[in-house]
Design a binder for these strands. Structure first.
Lengths: 195, 195
DNA sequence: TAAAAGTCTTAAACTAGTTCATTTTTTTTC
DNA sequence: GAAAAAAAATGAACTAGTTTAAGACTTTTA
């Protein structure tokens, strides 16, 4: 089996067991996608065509506010799922941009194939139930941190939770994720280094 | 059928169709719970025993930070699901309190019955997939608002999204949800009223 | 129904985080 | 590998939101 297919099957197998036939069927529903560094996987206004699984590289998911300031919703690296679930489900235009910060490779499942998947292999209901459950837990935590922690605390949390991502992204993008300006991010880091 | 049971079955029927037998089976897995105003449904340190559906009343879900300041994660009224999904799933102690702000009635599903449910009526995988998907969409949005909107904008958003909840909660609790002090909440409201 | 407890308002002094402007350092591109 | 572009650092002036404190208003409780 191809490396990227092994990666996605391993990811799914953490939650459900698939027969060889089911694995093949599932893989047949996927689309391979490559995006070069600095190019867009999707842009605000698009109706999201796929949910993505990253097999190589790094991407950022973000919105632009009225001032044009980017606010980063998530970073996605190998073995992560990403996309804009709201636009994917409702088929309404997205408010998000997804841009590669490294040359990246992804597997996408289209909305039509996503719907088909549940008919063909109902076990995937369980997989997505568990995947969404986990995402939900981490977004609940993140939204609580947003209202209860200082910027410095959120930075420390991020480093603790995503040690493997910190070194792959710019300080500026991290500021956009934490919810502060790059200048203040710089101050926080220099303060921590001074101690 | 009892009113509370009708309410929960209607809620579920938005996503999946159940036979009469399945409805009865499902209802048999539920526990009825009443909590008086100002009393706790659960407290930090508890391992969450149930996921709850509210049939009457209003509750707040919150944490206390190191200073003892409450940060409100959600308000739950009739036809809402609540609990601490992280503690429920991982069986680790919760960091949340859930307290009734009105005399309330709930239906709870225990962890054991939740697991049993998927064996007995696999269709519920789909129901929870869709329930979590919706919650996820709204928490993604909330965590983005936390990092990109001002307190005043978050207040306006809240009123727009939950017009039926605003009048049932105190300004102080709303401040705890928005992520600001009650004093600043008061300023925002008096500023808006002045305009 | 009076007392107690909690909520809301206002204001002054404060602090976390922003804005704007400039310089240095690093990365990208040709 | 030089030039251009982007990221990072620093600092001064600013603003959104906090803290503390005190008084008025409302709700709860005995």
């Amino acid at each position: 089996m191809e490396y990227s297919h092994k990666l996605i099957i391993d990811n799914i197998s953490r939650f459900i067991d698939l027969t060889e036939l089911e694995k093949q069927k599932y893989i047949s529903l996927l689309t391979e996608i490559k995006v070069n560094k600095k190019t867009y996987l999707m842009q605000a206004g698009d109706i999201t065509k796929y949910e993505y699984f990253i097999t190589k590289g790094c991407l950022k998911v973000y919105t632009l506010d009225v001032d044009g300031t980017p606010h980063i919703s998530m970073f996605a690296v190998e073995d992560y799922w990403t996309g804009d679930i709201a636009s994917f489900i409702t088929k309404q235009p997205s408010r998000y941009f997804i841009r590669a910060t490294e040359d990246s490779e992804l597997l996408g499942i289209s909305r039509a194939n996503y719907d088909l998947l549940f008919q063909e292999i109902p076990k995937f209901e369980r997989f997505y139930r568990m995947l969404y459950q986990r995402s939900l837990i981490s977004y609940i935590r993140r939204s609580n941190h947003g209202i209860s922690l200082t910027a410095e605390e959120r930075y420390i949390e991020f480093k603790k939770k995503y040690p493997n991502i910190v070194n792959r992204i710019t300080q500026k993008d991290l500021a956009g994720y934490i919810g502060i300006t790059p200048e203040f991010m710089s101050k926080i880091i220099s303060k921590i280094n001074r101690l």
